[in-house]
Computed example of a mutant assay.
Amino acid sequence: MQFKGKKVLITGGSRGIGKAIAMRLAAEGADIAIVGKTAEPHPKLEGTIYTAAEEISKAGAGKVVPIQGDIRFEDSIEQIVKITAEQLGGLDILINNASAITLSPTEQTEPKRWDLMHDINVRGTFFMSKACLPLLKKSTNAHILNLSPPLTLNPEWFGRFLAYTISKFGMSMIVLGLAEELKPHRIGVNALWPKTTIATAAIQNIVGGDMMVQRSRKPEIVADAAYHILQRPATECTGNFFIDEEILTQQGVTDFTHYAVNPAQKLMLDLFL
C-alpha cells in the first residue's frame, strides 16, 4: 500500500490512461478524484465519470470522487480544486492527463480544433497546476505529472502535425518551467510519455481505428510507470521527461508482452519518438 493516505487528482480520469493510473494508485491505497466531461453515456466513448469511479472503487479501499468538469474554464477549475480539497482533505499528486488531439496539416486545421487543443493541453494544464499549488505546497512529497512528450526541435513533428505538436510541447514546456520554479517548494514536476501508441478512445476514433489499436499497448503500462515515478522523492525527481518502457526496465521488467493488445502484431512507436 505504497500510496495509502495519498490524495490524487487526475484530469481525463474517466477512461484510458487516466483511469488506468487511477486504478493502479487506488490499488495501492490512494484516495482519488477523477475529472471528466462525460457524465452521461456517449456512443463513441467508454463509460462516464461515475462508471469509472465504480471501477476504481473496486480496485482499492480508498475514497474515489468523480467530478464533472472542463479544464478549459477557470470557474470549472476552481470548482474541481474546491471539491477535491473538501472531499479528499488535501492533495499530494496532480496528474495532468486530459488532452485533445487533431492530426491535421495546417490547411485542414480549423480554428475550433486549434482552440480545443490549446485550451485543454496548454491552458488547462497550466491553470490546473496553478490552482493546485496551494494544496500541493502543504504535502510532504508533492508531484505534478504531465502526460506529454520529451521536448525536441525535430522539424519532422512540426511539419507533420504543427498545431497538435505545439500544444503537446506546450505541456512539456510547463514541466520544464514549473520544475525549476517549484524547486524551493519541494514539488516534483515531470512528464511521462509512452514508447508505443496506447489503446485509447483517441487512437480508436481519431488516429487509426481498429488496426492501430491492434498495434498498441494497454494503458496499464503507463499506469505502472506512473506508479514508480510518483513514489520517488519529489526533491530528487523533477524536470524529467520519462518514457514508460524505460522506467519499467529500470525496475527490472524484461517482458512487456502482457501489455500488448495483440502480441502477434508489431507495435507502433508513439508520436515524437
Rank of each mutant, 00 (worst) to 15 (best):
I56A: 05
L151T: 08
A201V: 13
Q204W: 08
T48L: 09
T249S: 12
T109L: 09
N154E: 12
G18P: 03
L91Q: 02
A98S: 14
I247N: 05
G60K: 08
T102A: 14
G29L: 10
I198E: 06
D92R: 06
T200S: 12
W193I: 01
A201Q: 15
G239Y: 07
N190P: 08
N146W: 01
S57R: 14
H118M: 10
R217E: 14
G62E: 12
D244E: 07
A33Y: 02
R123D: 03
L230F: 04
M268F: 11
A20W: 01
P219W: 02
E46W: 11
G18N: 04
A52H: 01
T197V: 11
G188K: 08
L94K: 10
K183C: 05
I95G: 08
N141A: 04
C132A: 12
T11G: 03
A22E: 02
T235L: 10
K4H: 11
A179Y: 08
K44E: 13
L176K: 15
I187H: 01
A202Q: 14
P149R: 00
P194Q: 07
Y227L: 10
I144F: 02
A163H: 12
I17R: 02
E181M: 09
P219E: 05
A260L: 07
Q108Y: 08
V81E: 00
P111V: 09
R72P: 00
K183Y: 03
R217Q: 15
R123Q: 09
T51K: 14
I166L: 14
C237E: 12
S99F: 06
E181Y: 10
Y259A: 05
F169V: 01
I221H: 06
I221C: 05
E245V: 10
T140H: 14
K58Y: 11
K218H: 11
H258W: 13
P105F: 09
P155D: 12
